[in-house]
Design a protein around this nucleic acid. Structure first.
Lengths: 344, 344
DNA sequence: CGGTCGGATGCTCATGTGAGCAGGCGCGCA
DNA sequence: TGCGCGCCTGCTCACATGAGCATCCGACCG
């Protein structure tokens, strides 16, 4: 077969052309002279080499992004925006990068929200730290779910909201209440208290929300903080909980795992999150793929900031995961992205 | 320090620009619009990103080459040509690629040698196999050092020369003699035999030589073939031998390790190799760095075909090299390579 | 044997891109 | 404060490049 033979020869030519073009910075014309082909053919060889993946261009930088994945994610789940950072091998580094990216994104959000609702946790704390002083002017911050001032961990809950507000020269309004109350009556009582209910009311009016999610396991801050026991987590998992969003445990279906527990959970509800125009989910790492999937497939966020592994996991279709999305992978992104990207 | 801050900002801009340019195929003008800078600045950011190594362009293909290393090698050792292939993790694969590259090179040698002198060994056998049928027309081949027809290995010695000749539609002239004789007298006697001496004489007239080199250890084909014992190798190593070239063991200084042994070695001498206009060394793999160095530093080859690790080892300067390798790695290559490469 | 089709080839032309240069800006130094 | 000095900016212009098109060649089929 002559065609096979010439195809192989062409591929070799393409490799030589690519070397001369990308490594030696020669012009296509010069390459043509060297390889004894016309410069147009050189151009075609190079195009071919790029298509076939012979040439790999990679941007190696901690702040690099994965725009292709961002587009795919956004298109697949109808997000307003998606930010995907390359995943380093180191989990700690990964969390740092995601947080940094979230901070970058927050800075660039337009219009600048006058009031920003935030949850708390390890991730959000890192985001707060990554924000530059003066990242915005006069942005007030309100805490959207009950928090742990009692935690032994340095700077959780309150300090996160405060730091974000401070760095924007705004006021922070905290939610002075536990995340989960032991008795429903207590929760109702505390909720009706002006200082608590008022904050929740204020949170409902936030122009944007910034939140993360936790995994339903014993490493959760809820266990650390004493709101839940290992047994509680065990039961939640039996009910299909994959993780929590602003304190509320959800299943892969995006439904509340334990309504009774949820009723005792104080703060913004999932509906408010779903209906918000800007709700930014910051989430990264292997362990959180399941929660992340639950959140994006059920419209609980309009923006996601994550790492490329999580992004790919979200785009990979898992054939059989009961109840929920039954996604099917499309070959590749031929999405003719008509709109210009946003995020600068 | 304002400069630090703006430099960091610039770097981020460069990263964003690179992403949009290389991953999204946007024009510099478009990128300028997105990042709110002029298109000239975008051009400069991209140039900066390339310089700083933020953008990594790699050509992933088994037949790819390392032109930069080739140029450096050629310049450093005054070679006519150097062929460097990327090194895969797998040693077997590496040998295959080097052999393939050597075959490619041989095909492209101009003027086409009417008579080609070849040695034998595992490497050269692979080269012979990698040559396409009809790689040249009417190229005759002559064996340049004594060979093992007796070896248990399939297709060594004779078959290598024969295969190369056959594929070029030429005649192969073999050297019907052992590589190393036990007694000097025997060697002299056999050498003076017309059928042997004539071949050696013919070999001296070859227009080009193709050869590899062996390591001075017990895995050598010389040991396998029974020409040398493990003890012989031990003694050679004590005398500083790093390996053999067409059957002759040399030290890192490029001198004959054991003159007495060498006198009993039949075939072309090192001087003939050194003075040849085209002598192509095919060598790859970790173990052969020392021999390779001895060969190139002492002008025994005019062309080298190797892998990138070997190439880098050859370019790394070792301060004190007294026979035993005592390598010292230098930070990186800032070697200004002034001359344009040759190899087509 | 002649017709037709698909893919590759070499071209024209519009656009994209890099080199080189004048001006401006901020910094350091007196 | 005033005066260079060097770096950065935005520009012109020449060149490199990719899109689109007419043509050619070989393969396949009636």
């Amino acid at each position: 077969m002559v065609s096979t033979e010439s195809a192989a020869a062409n591929e070799l030519l393409a490799v030589r052309a690519a070397e001369l073009y990308y490594e030696e910075n020669k012009t296509q014309d010069e390459i043509g002279a060297i390889l004894r082909v016309t410069r147009w053919k050189v151009g075609r060889l190079l195009a071919q080499a790029r298509e076939r993946g012979i040439i790999r261009i990679e941007i190696v930088h901690p702040r690099a992004r994965r725009l292709a994945l961002e587009r795919e994610l956004g298109a697949r789940y109808g997000l307003k925006d998606a930010i995907v950072v390359p995943a380093p091998v180191d989990e700690v580094e990964l969390q740092a990068r995601v947080a940094e990216a979230a901070a970058d994104y927050l800075v660039s959000v337009r219009p600048v929200p006058r009031l920003l609702g935030v949850s708390w946790g390890r991730t959000l704390h890192q985001v707060a730290e990554a924000l530059p002083v003066g990242w915005a002017t006069a942005v007030n911050v309100v805490q959207i779910n009950g928090g742990v001032s009692l935690s032994k961990r340095p700077g959780t809950a309150a300090s996160t909201a405060v730091m974000i507000a401070q760095k924007a020269g705004g006021q922070a309004t905290l939610l002075p209440s536990p995340a989960i109350l032991e008795r429903l009556e207590t929760k109702k009582a505390i909720e009706s208290d002006r200082t608590v209910g008022g904050v929740v009311q204020m949170a409902r009016g936030a122009a944007a929300y910034l939140f993360s999610a936790g995994v339903a396991d014993t490493s959760s801050v809820h266990v650390d903080s004493g709101y839940l026991t290992a047994d509680d987590i065990g039961e939640l998992r039996e009910r299909g909980a994959v993780g929590d969003v602003i304190g509320r445990y959800i299943t892969a279906d995006g439904t509340i795992a334990d309504p009774e527990l949820d009723a005792r959970t104080l703060g913004l509800g999932l509906e408010e999150l779903r209906e918000a125009t800007t709700s930014i989910l910051v989430i990264g790492g292997e362990a959180k793929h399941a929660v992340a999937r639950a959140i994006v497939t059920h419209g609980l966020c309009s923006v996601i900031v994550t790492d490329e592994h999580t992004a790919r996991a979200l785009l990979d279709d898992l054939d059989g995961h009961d109840s929920g999305a039954d996604l099917r992978v499309e070959p590749a992104g031929h999405h003719a992205t008509p709109s210009e990207g946003s995020s600068s």
